[in-house]
């Protein structure tokens, strides 16, 4: 959730049980994203991101790579308790 806010999104919905967060970014364009987090085994989490830009699904891998890099940064800050 923090990562999406860092990237300029406003959250639309979140569901703790399903592990989903949906958010929208408006900066001259509409970018909508859903991120799903679920357990993978006992020590890992699986994170899936699914974005749509201006009514088209985003299929280019680069934006997703950028998102996961941003998520890693936010998790680092979380671990350091930096705001």
């Amino acid at each position: 959730m923090a990562t999406l806010q860092d990237l300029g999104f406003v959250l639309d919905k979140a569901d703790l049980e399903l592990g989903t967060v949906t958010a929208t970014k408006l900066e001259g364009y509409v970018l909508r994203i859903t991120v799903t987090v679920r357990p993978r085994g006992t020590t890992q989490l699986l994170v899936r991101a699914n974005a749509e830009y201006q009514e088209h699904a985003v299929v280019d891998p680069k934006p997703y790579q950028q998102f996961f890099a941003s998520l890693s940064k936010a998790m680092f800050l979380e671990a350091q308790q930096v705001e």
Partner: peptide, 17 residues
């Protein structure tokens, strides 16, 4: 094609935080 900076962390991200 989505803008290059749309999902990218940058200096602005920390300022906004």
């Amino acid at each position: 094609a989505i803008p290059k900076e749309a999902l990218q962390w940058n200096e602005q991200s920390m300022e906004r935080r």
